[in-house]
Design a protein around this nucleic acid. Structure first.
Lengths: 220, 220
DNA sequence: AACAATAGCAAACAGTGTTCGCAGTTTAGG
DNA sequence: CCTAAACTGCGAACACTGTTTGCTATTGTT
């Protein structure tokens, strides 16, 4: 049951450079592998992230990766936790919790823009690595002045990150490109589209609007 | 470019039982295949949906499916459009557009509960089959009384279905099961959890609350 | 009857994540 | 000092996957 993929600390004196275990010194580290996988996936997309590809980037064999990582899913979790470090340092406290939460979400959105694969990963299996927990902890710190149950706060945070994910996804898909619309079968769709021949670039920030109304609604 | 996977209508008289094309009569239909794939995926999950498995359910070979469907993705689109028929008949018009939109979303949520794989499918590639368009059209009908640009309405609808997806997903994952929390490293998380030893079952409907505040915020 | 178009489908192809077994390397214990 | 234990790297194989190819069989048209 013990995880063989992390170098174990020695029983002996702490702070000492930990004595080498037996066997050859590992050529790589979990972080090396995470970094290689991240740059690869940033460039080639999630579909391009294969164990063989990561191994090739590290100039080794696919099987070797399994000395460091139990599965592809664990690698994804590792990558996720790694890029989440980019969310630091967390913005210092506004006295307005709403502004602070919006700021946290905005930085999350920027992270999604930098690593688009994150959107798909976090949705399939929400991350609970150390960095995710630290981020969550800071959100709860921000929400300290709010009088609401812990459960309600968790829900609100979950919804906020969910909405952020939605925006990231819709940005990436740019325009889903509706097919030619049969204006007889779908009259309202056709009208709503054609009426927007001149799209007045709303200077409303949809992201912030949605987030604010949601958080206010949930943490009234 | 023409799609060989749908039986072509004859040039001649409409309404006539369309004369058979050459070759043997097809053993299946696209709908047959969609239904088989849907029941299979309802039971086994998205990961269990392989072309071979669907073929086996229809007592045929995997290659045969490609006479009806161009790819697995197209099959997924077919399945999606098929189950979306369950959203009909659309609820008749409330005079309150907000109530009507909430009702539309609620039915969507129920659909997600019946076919959990839909959550993952629609998120990767938003559907624009006939049923999806019909549903969208009805949403726009409901939003007729609202004074807002077509674009704004599209955005609002997209957010509503996005939020619905979030809820469906969080229901399915039941509890993501936080790992044991180090209350020193993450003090606020630890506090927020322990304070909820007695979870007072809120009779607030989180889904409706979130949806209402969002729609009001976006379509003010 | 000949021809063209279609359907069904086994086999093969290229790819995937993962496991196995072994060779090579380093350290611990006697 | 040497053996044994523990460890790393990794080629090869396994069990899958979606998809293509090439063939045969069937049907409608000419």
């Amino acid at each position: 049951m013990s995880d063989p993929h992390r170098p174990r600390k020695r029983t002996a004196s702490a702070g000492e450079t930990p004595r080498r275990r037996r066997g050859p010194v590992p050529t790589h580290s979990r972080d090396d592998i995470a970094v290689a996988a991240i740059t690869l996936t940033d460039n080639e997309g999630l579909a391009g992230l294969s164990m063989r590809a990561v191994a090739a980037a590290l100039d080794t064999g696919a099987a070797s990766l399994y000395r460091y990582v139990a599965s592809r899913d664990e690698l994804l979790a590792l990558m996720t936790d790694h890029v989440m470090r980019e969310l630091r340092p967390y913005p210092a406290g506004h006295d307005q919790w709403l502004d602070a939460m919006v700021e946290m979400s905005r930085r999350q959105l920027q992270l999604y823009r930098r690593h688009s694969w994150l959107v798909d990963v976090t949705q399939q299996s929400p991350a609970f690595g150390p960095e995710a927990l630290a981020w969550l902890d800071h959100c709860l710190l921000v929400l300290e002045p709010v009088t609401a149950s812990g459960r309600a706060k968790f829900e609100a945070i979950a919804m906020a990150t969910g909405v952020t994910t939605l925006f990231a996804r819709s940005e990436l898909a740019s325009q889903p490109a509706l097919p030619p619309i049969d204006s007889h079968a779908y009259p309202h769709v056709a009208r709503a589209i054609s009426a927007d021949a001149t799209p007045p670039p709303t200077d409303r920030d949809l992201f912030e609007d949605a987030l604010r109304s949601l958080l206010i609604g949930l943490l009234s």
